[in-house]
Computed example of a mutant assay.
Amino acid sequence: MRVPFVKMHGLGNDFVILDAREQELPVLSTRAIAALADRRTGIGCDQLVRLEPTSAAEADFRMRIFNADGGEVGACGNASRAVALLHGRPARIETESGIVSAHPSDSGVDVDMGVPRFEWESVPLAYPMDTLAMPVAWDVLENPAAVNVGNPHVVFFVDRQEDIPLEHLGPEIENDQLFPARINVNVATVTDRGTIRLRVWERGSGLTRACGTGACATAVSAIRRRLVDNEVTVHLPGGALQISWDGSGPIIMSGPAQESFRGEFDLQDYL
């Protein structure tokens, strides 16, 4: 069976998108998704995204997101921007974590990412602790903030994020027993009141050029710690995102997305 796809990216965070809103497409197994995501033997991507019709009255369609290891996750900011660009007009998108609103704009796409959750059981953590300054450490990384922005994140503020061996510490922290659902790991340096530099180890995918939910998690954590103002530019290896948060309402993320190419694959090659 030949399956059509669209390859897109947001600041280098790339996706294989299967659009099953108006045509019937197979539901892929975890193994098939991981095989498609492989950059040597598959199409290659950080996430596979599947669009489907929705039964939710308040949504236009449903988006399901699968990391490169085949595991399903609740939210992806960069994927939301890519899907909104593909849709071509404002959309309310049903995700596992709730409804996301996206609006194409002159600068790319603006996405309402919803209200962040800071309760320890909402992150989730294995046991109660202060999520603004957690009394834990891994090597040189210590006292992180934790937040759920549709998926779970832990944020470390350091003097020089580029010096942190995230390729080694990232998987250790991601799989620590403190995080029963695993965790996305962010290391950030605040440059000034309006600027943050960030690298992300993404749960189930590894080091990534950009992570929209990571930028949101880092920005709101910095705002809570009074390190930055309510509007901040987050610079990732793939480019910059604009994040605004008033301290209580939804997070607004703005940034570009782009279509790379279209094609199709033979499903039998990935079973």
Rank of each mutant, 00 (worst) to 15 (best):
G206I: 09
I251A: 03
N143W: 01
E172F: 02
S205G: 06
P237C: 07
I164G: 13
C211P: 13
W201D: 04
R225W: 09
V220A: 07
I251L: 03
I164D: 02
G247E: 02
V232K: 04
P250T: 09
S221P: 10
H168C: 05
R197D: 15
G214M: 11
G238V: 06
V154Y: 00
V232W: 01
I243P: 11
A215Y: 08
E172V: 15
R160V: 12
V149W: 00
Q242G: 12
R209N: 12
F157E: 07
H235W: 14
D246Q: 05
N230F: 02
I173R: 10
I251V: 15
S205Q: 09
L169P: 01
V149N: 02
A145H: 11
G212M: 07
V234G: 05
R224F: 05
G247P: 06
Q161L: 13
F157Q: 02
E167S: 13
V190R: 05
Q242A: 14
D229N: 15
T208V: 15
V187A: 05
S248L: 02
G239F: 14
P171L: 14
N186E: 15
L166G: 04
P237D: 05
I164L: 01
V158H: 08
C216V: 04
G214V: 06
P237E: 05
P152K: 08
D163K: 07
G214F: 11
V185D: 08
V232Y: 05
P237F: 07
L169V: 13
L169G: 03
I251Y: 04
G212I: 10
D176F: 13
P152E: 08
N175L: 11
V220R: 08
I251E: 01
A219N: 09
G247D: 09
N184M: 04
T191Q: 13
R199S: 12
H168L: 15
N143Q: 15
A215G: 02
L236T: 11
N143Y: 06
N148V: 05
F179G: 10
W201C: 06
Q161S: 10
I251D: 00
A146W: 01
T195W: 06
T189P: 08
V147C: 10
V200A: 02
S221L: 11
V234D: 06
L178H: 10
V187T: 14
G212C: 09
Q177I: 12
R226T: 12
A217T: 13
P250N: 13
P250E: 09
R193P: 01
I251C: 06
A146R: 11
E167L: 04
G170A: 08
L169M: 09
P171N: 12
V190I: 14
R160Y: 07
L198A: 07
G212A: 03
G206T: 10
L236K: 00
N148G: 07
I223R: 01
T213S: 13
E174H: 14
V228M: 03
A240M: 12
V147E: 04
N230W: 01
S221N: 09
E142F: 08
V154P: 03
P171Q: 07
I223H: 00
G249H: 07
A188W: 13
P165K: 13
